[in-house]
Amino acid sequence: MTKKILISLFVIGSVLPLSASLTYALLYSLGLTGLLSDGLTLANWIQIFTGEFFQSMIYSVWIAFSSAFFTITLAMTLLFIARKYLNRPNVYRSLFLPLTIPPIVLAFVIFQLYSGGGILSRVAWHLGLISDLNQFPALVQDPYGIGIILAHIFLVFPFFLLVLLNLFENEKLDELAAVASTLGADPKDIIFRIQVPILLKGIFPLLALYFIFFLGAFEIPLVLGQSSPHMITVLIIEKLQRFNLADIPVAYAMAVWYSVICIATISYLFTHFKKRYSL
């Protein structure tokens, strides 16, 4: 009896909100409900694959991919350069510092550091490298999303480094290196043929998960992103809060599409990657 109540609570607290919200958003996007609803239409769904919305999707994928790529590259590089050093208690502990900063605060800090009027620009001025703030390169609110990518890397690479350090121990990569060296492998072979492939295989589910998180980033692109194209989440909010009512169903279509991608990805990872690691 209690078990039935608890399962119901799970459904009400977890399954129902998402199903209900997705259903409403889908109906709205298909023109079946909402302020301007005119009957079933696929026009809104077609529109998310054209123009502004499609550009936003491409831009978001670029940001997510670059963030994931540079994060894992930096974490792997540091792992191999300084692994034994990183295992020292104080160094290990310091890797947790970025986890204490909320994304909106980090976005603000990055802006204050890297914008034209920011701290780095002022340092450059004092060093005589520039004579005007407009001469400072665009690192935030720029076309390539440099500021956004930097913020993502800052927030996430220490966590990846922690995971890689643990993975390195759990997969016994030191012992495998000894085995490989007695079989004739040189240090380069050991790193690139044995250790890196095993680490990448182990960390792939987490990397895929963070790709999705980067894709759905909101606070950081809100502060550090340019005016166009926006990332998906920022565009959705903008379209819902502006005056053009015709944009609303398209925004809902975008929201449903993005949610479906997230659900599909996590379902795939969940069913295909049984082996998980412990931290």
Partner: peptide, 13 residues
Amino acid sequence: FPYVIAPVVFAVM
């Protein structure tokens, strides 16, 4: 599912 979807998008829907 609620864990992976961006909270703001969830809020929107």
